[in-house]
């Protein structure tokens, strides 16, 4: 597998993610628009859908916050790359952002000067079999990222307590984080991996039910609670505060029950590069 090929594909994926709303998200927005009764909320959903149309047709970023690119790499054990993998991805992302005039939003956390394209968040898994390379790019906007939550529950906590915590996190995010949201939840692991699973949950398609029936029921209960908060698109009311809730779980310790919440705004952007 060639360095130049990875770089080129990542560059394309950056444009794809920033200009084209994910089809599953678009589908959910259309459904919400059709069923919304509150006029102001319906108008807002109409703006969101028009925005997606203009962004795709005219190659203008869906949102000026082109995010901090979070990159997930799954590399097959037998994969061989000429040149460095990370360097290829990094260059591809930088070229994708630069060539498409996407906003540089990354700064030193203390200096806060000269925003650049350097400093993506990487998550690399090397344990998938075969020769395949899968790169997922999630440009994560910070209006919603700022409302991330973590709680270390007691291991005896009831599902209802967890569901209320998630609902409360959504309430706090409110109109600031560009609802309607997709709510990513990570249950289990350690404090850091619970939040990581929450972020990974945002990559799951939202037009299919969770194959785990217990999680599916939990997602549906949270979805119902969240959508009765009355926040709605742009915080203008109505019944659509969330487009979906996605939960991932991983094993945890007998003494704990970490729960991470990572919220995405309605402009949930992610794209995938798969190379053999």
């Amino acid at each position: 597998m060639k360095y130049s090929c990875i770089k080129k594909e990542v560059e394309k994926a950056v444009a794809q993610a920033n200009f084209c709303l994910r089809p599953d998200v678009k589908k959910a927005l259309k459904k919400a628009y059709a069923s919304e009764k509150v006029l102001k909320a319906k108008t807002a959903l109409g703006w969101i859908l028009d925005n997606a149309g203009i962004a795709e047709k005219e190659s203008i970023a869906l949102c000026q916050d082109t995010g901090l690119p979070v990159v997930f790499i799954e590399a097959g054990k037998k994969m061989r790359i000429s040149g460095g993998l990370i360097a290829a991805v990094e260059k591809g992302i930088e070229a994708g952002y630069r060539k498409n005039s996407l906003r540089p939003s990354i700064v030193d956390p203390l200096d806060r000067c000269r925003p650049s394209y350097k400093g993506m968040a990487y998550h690399i898994d090397f344990f998938s079999a075969g020769r395949k390379l899968k790169i997922t790019i999630l440009p994560k906007g910070f209006g919603s990222e700022n409302k991330s939550r973590l709680k270390m529950f007691n291991p005896t906590a009831e599902p209802e307590e967890i569901e209320n915590f998630i609902t409360e996190a959504v309430k706090e995010a409110g109109a600031q984080s560009c609802p309607p949201f997709v709510i990513g939840v990570g249950v289990g692991g350690t404090c850091d991996s619970a939040l990581m699973e929450a972020k990974r949950a945002l990559l799951i398609r939202i037009d299919k039910p969770n194959p785990d029936r217990k999680l599916d029921r939990m997602e549906k209960r949270i979805f119902k609670k969240v959508n009765s908060l009355g926040i709605g698109p742009m915080g203008l009311g109505g019944k659509c505060t969330a487009l979906a809730v996605r939960i991932r779980k991983i094993p945890t310790h007998i003494a704990g029950l970490p729960v991470g919440v990572n919220i995405s705004c309605h402009a949930l952007r992610s794209s995938v590069v798969e190379l053999e």
């Binding site: 807002a44 703006w47 969101i48 028009d50 925005n51 869906l62 949102c63 906007g141 742009m234």
Partner: peptide, 13 residues
């Protein structure tokens, strides 16, 4: 005032 949030492409026009 509020402007349509997350609608930067629409507003660019």
């Amino acid at each position: 005032f509020l402007a349509p949030s997350g609608c930067g492409a629409l507003l660019a026009k």
